[in-house]
Amino acid sequence: MIEQSPALHPGGHDRMRAGLNHLAVHGSAEAVGAALAAGWTTRTESGRSVHPVDAQGFELEVVVAG
């Protein structure tokens, strides 16, 4: 279960605030493609690491194998 603090600031997720700002996972190029097809955008891509961002600004770092 994930808890949410009642001491939230209005305006949704902000990656510059304290707390979790992105999650890094191993994944596939197909998974990145699925995220982009679902409306995520690419913030940056560096070699095997792709950083898609959702509509609220949450960043997922996907390290693509091989």
Rank of each mutant, 00 (worst) to 15 (best):
Thr44Tyr: 13
Gln4Cys: 09
Ala24Pro: 01
Val62Met: 00
Ser49Asn: 14
Ala35Arg: 06
Ala7Asp: 11
Ala38Leu: 13
His26Thr: 14
Ala65Ser: 11
Glu61Met: 03
Thr41Lys: 13
Glu3Tyr: 02
Ile2Pro: 10
His13Arg: 05
Glu30Lys: 13
Phe58Arg: 03
Ile2Met: 05
Leu60Val: 01
Ser46Val: 13
Gly66Leu: 10
Thr44Glu: 15
Ala7Ile: 03
Ser28Pro: 02
Ser28Thr: 15
Thr41Gly: 14
Pro10Thr: 03
Ala18Ile: 06
Glu3Pro: 01
Thr44Ser: 14
Val32Phe: 10
Asp54Pro: 08
Val25Phe: 02
Val63Gln: 12
Ala38Ile: 03
Pro52Trp: 02
Ala38Thr: 12
Ala38Phe: 09
Val32Lys: 02
Ser49Met: 08
Ala65Leu: 11
Met16Trp: 07
Ala38Val: 04
Leu23Tyr: 05
Gly11Thr: 03
Ala24Asp: 02
Leu20Glu: 13
Trp40Thr: 02
Gly12Cys: 05
Val53Leu: 09
Met1Glu: 10
Thr44Asp: 14
Val50Pro: 00
Val50Phe: 00
Gly66Asn: 08
Val62Ala: 00
Glu61Asn: 06
Ala29Glu: 11
Arg17Asn: 04
Leu20Tyr: 05
Ala29Val: 10
Pro52Arg: 09
Asp14Pro: 04
Glu3Thr: 04
Val62Leu: 05
Ala31Trp: 07
Ser5Gln: 08
Val63Pro: 04
Ala18Tyr: 02
Leu60His: 00
Ala37Tyr: 14
Leu20Gly: 07
Ala35Leu: 15
Glu59Val: 10
Thr41His: 12
Asn21Ser: 05
Glu30Met: 13
Thr41Asp: 13
Ala24Met: 09
Trp40Cys: 02
Leu23Ala: 05
Ser28Lys: 08
Ala37Asp: 12
Glu45Val: 00
Gln56Leu: 01
Val63Leu: 12
Val64Thr: 08
Pro6Gln: 05
Arg15Ile: 02
Leu8His: 09
Gln56Val: 03
Gly12Phe: 04
Glu45Met: 07
Ile2Asp: 12
Ala7Gln: 09
Thr42Lys: 07
